[in-house]
Amino acid sequence: MDLEAVRTFAAVVAAGQFQKAAADLEITQQAVSKRIAALERDLGVRLFTRTPRGAELTIDGQAFLPHARELLRAAERAVASVRTGRRPLRVDVIASRVAPSGLLREFHRVNPGIELDVVMLFDVEAAVTALRSGAIDASFRAVAAPGRPLPDDIGSVRVLDEPLQLLTGPAHALAGARSVTVAELVGHRIWMPGIAPGTEWAAYYEDLVAGFGLTIEATGPNFGSDALLDTVADTPALATLMSEHTRLVWPAGHGLRRIPVTGPTPVYPHSLLWHRDNPHPALPVLRAHLVAAAPALDAAGTWRPDWVLPR
């Protein structure tokens, strides 16, 4: 159905006259008449009766009016859903419990007037594809793996170096330590079933293993963090690595320990990615907030892979 004809129909109803509707729409009276005639042909009914007082709705016109108004409201909602500046800012945070989700929650607390759509994509390749297509406006990522730099049209800024911690059950050999060095982790089984080959986090942990001689196992299906916590709590020989800001909840009986890792402290580098041509007005606000709120990066005594881009 021709929405301009429907809009003209609604304008004639509101004005009560074809001539006044033409002035309101800033078109000629002849154009109004043509649009109404075309709409009546499409519907197979007469919508108006002309009288000395103006244009009055027929019975069919009265029946069509509420549906016409709903069509116009639906069209307005459809346009608003994609119009830059009126639609929410779409941001990828990987998962709901990790640090980027907390960064985005803090941004929303400070900027409650900016609407957000939060999505969770799988890896940096999916995020870059979504940024380039306009499906999302920004993504929190570890940037890129060795040999796979970001495309020139994708901007990035590092916003957080998040320390890793060792997570053990109460019977693990290191459970009583207040902190552990990376060297002390050598020879211990670190179980991380969520590492997917080809992802940026897989590249990160591959470099960590190669740099310090650690043993990280990614065997078995990934049933999620709750299943991981259950297994680590019940298996003295297993531990896992968790980012410091990852939100975890477990039963009190698990007795899990979160232990800082030092000498050096491995940090996971979170960056914000966006398409350089993205015009959404809230995107610069998000970038500025994250840069201003970012703690010190590249701190002494920390480690990150060589391929991590500078801020």
Rank of each mutant, 00 (worst) to 15 (best):
E4D: 13
A5K: 05
V6T: 03
R7A: 12
A22M: 04
D24W: 09
L25D: 02
V32K: 07
S33W: 02
K34L: 14
I36S: 01
T51W: 03
R53A: 14
L57R: 07
H67L: 15
R69G: 15
E70I: 08
E70D: 12
A74G: 09
V82R: 15
P88C: 05
P88R: 01
R90W: 05
V93L: 13
A95N: 09
V98A: 12
A99R: 04
S101L: 05
H108K: 14
R109K: 12
V118M: 08
V118N: 05
V119Y: 00
F122M: 12
T129K: 14
R132Y: 04
R132E: 12
A145Q: 07
A145K: 10
G147I: 01
D161T: 04
G176V: 05
A177E: 11
L185Y: 07
V186I: 11
G187T: 02
H188K: 07
W201Y: 15
A202L: 05
T215P: 00
T215V: 13
N222V: 01
G224K: 09
A233H: 06
P236Q: 02
P236F: 07
L238C: 09
T240W: 01
R247T: 14
L248K: 02
R258L: 15
T262I: 07
P264T: 04
P266D: 04
L273I: 13
R276Q: 15
N278R: 09
R287G: 10
H289G: 00
A296P: 07
L297H: 10
G301F: 04
T302G: 08
W303S: 07
R304A: 14
L309M: 10
